[in-house]
């Protein structure tokens, strides 16, 4: 039979496929633990360094070998994945409202943000501008973004923390200057008329602006801006607007998951490590503004002073703003659907 080899091969393929199934449950010794950190887009480099430091620290202090896995993506979609069952031990998302969505589904207790120092904020950040070398479009402040012929790049406020913060910062810049809500909406409507590409996450926008060379100005995280400029080798520069929003990327241990996985101890130690001097130094090194005053003072020269307004300037708190601006049928939907 000529086809015998073929039949053997088919059986072989089946056997390999069945035998090759990776066994899911790892029952290692009790002295090792694995944590999953679900984070937003531009924090990859930060967490790589922080994880390395924490793993060494925890082994020394507690004698436990911890392995940390990372998942990155748009802040909103990451929150959604955790709600859908992604086994995050800790979430380190861009926005209060994204983390707070987990509370809605019973994964976090009420007042979860009061469990860690400084309202669960190991670092702060803001939204700044990145422009092409020499700032050819003369962009200096928010109002310059809606000048004729200026193309703006910022991710989608629906899925990305960076996108939401850009929106809120633009809105707040009008309110801060004494403008009304109606004037703010008019400005933001014009601004999104200038947005060329709406990526789903912060990193996607960076690639669009820096590598694909689309747009004149990129509204992005301060830390992402520094990284982008380092990578560009002198073809991009940073511009600080007069004022911008105070971004508050909260961190939290996901109670629903750590209790089931029995990883609470390590997860809490992990987040507390962020507040140590060592953790805060790493945070500053990656251009996030440390929340510990001594460390922040030490790095003053790095972070240009800028008038950072809290979310209350925009109106209400994080949760309220999320509902008002970005929920289905909210202000952003109204603005963006009218544009088309």
């Amino acid at each position: 039979m000529k086809a015998r080899w073929f039949q053997t091969a088919m059986l072989g393929v089946l056997t390999v496929a069945v035998a090759g199934c990776p066994n899911g449950n790892k029952t290692g010794d009790s002295k090792s633990v694995e944590l999953l950190n679900v984070s937003y887009d531009p924090t990859r480099e930060l967490w790589r360094d922080l994880n390395k430091a924490f793993v060494a620290d925890y082994r020394k202090k507690a004698g436990i070998a911890v392995a940390i896995k990372q998942s990155h993506g748009g802040s909103g979609s990451q929150a959604r994945a955790v709600i859908d069952g992604l086994d995050a031990d800790v979430v380190t998302l861009a926005l209060f409202s994204d983390t707070d969505a987990l509370r809605d589904k019973g994964l976090l207790p009420v007042k979860w943000d009061e469990r860690l120092p400084n309202r669960s904020l190991p670092y702060l950040s803001t939204i700044v501008f990145v422009v092409r070398k020499g700032n050819p479009k003369k962009i200096g402040d928010w109002s310059d973004l809606v000048k004729d012929g200026v193309d703006v790049i910022s991710p989608n406020p629906k899925t990305s923390g960076n996108g939401k913060l850009s929106f809120l910062a633009a809105w707040g810049s009008v309110r801060k200057a004494g403008g009304s809500d109606a004037e703010a909406e008019e400005f933001v409507r014009k601004l999104y008329g200038h947005v060329k590409v709406l990526d789903t996450g912060a990193r996607g926008s960076t690639v669009t602006f820096a590598q694909r060379q689309i747009g004149d100005v990129h509204l992005t995280w301060e830390n992402e801006a520094f990284l982008e400029i380092e990578e560009s080798k002198g073809t991009l520069e940073i511009v600080y607007p007069k004022s911008s929003i105070l971004a508050e990327p909260h961190v939290a241990v996901v109670d629903g998951n750590v209790d089931r996985k029995k990883t609470r101890e390590a997860a809490e130690a992990y987040l507390n490590f962020l507040y140590t001097d060592e953790g805060q130094e790493i945070i500053a090194k990656h251009y996030y503004r440390p929340s510990k005053t001594e460390i922040e003072k030490k790095h003053r020269d790095k972070f240009q002073p800028i008038d950072l307004f809290p979310i209350t300037t925009v109106g209400g708190g994080w949760a309220e703003s999320q509902k008002r601006f970005f929920a289905e049928g909210g202000v952003f939907d109204r603005i963006y659907s009218k544009k088309q």
Binding site: L14, V16, A17, V18, G20
Partner: peptide, 10 residues
């Protein structure tokens, strides 16, 4: 290298 052959086998 595991997923592709397994999917193909199925």
């Amino acid at each position: 290298l595991f997923i592709a052959p397994a999917a193909v086998a199925m």
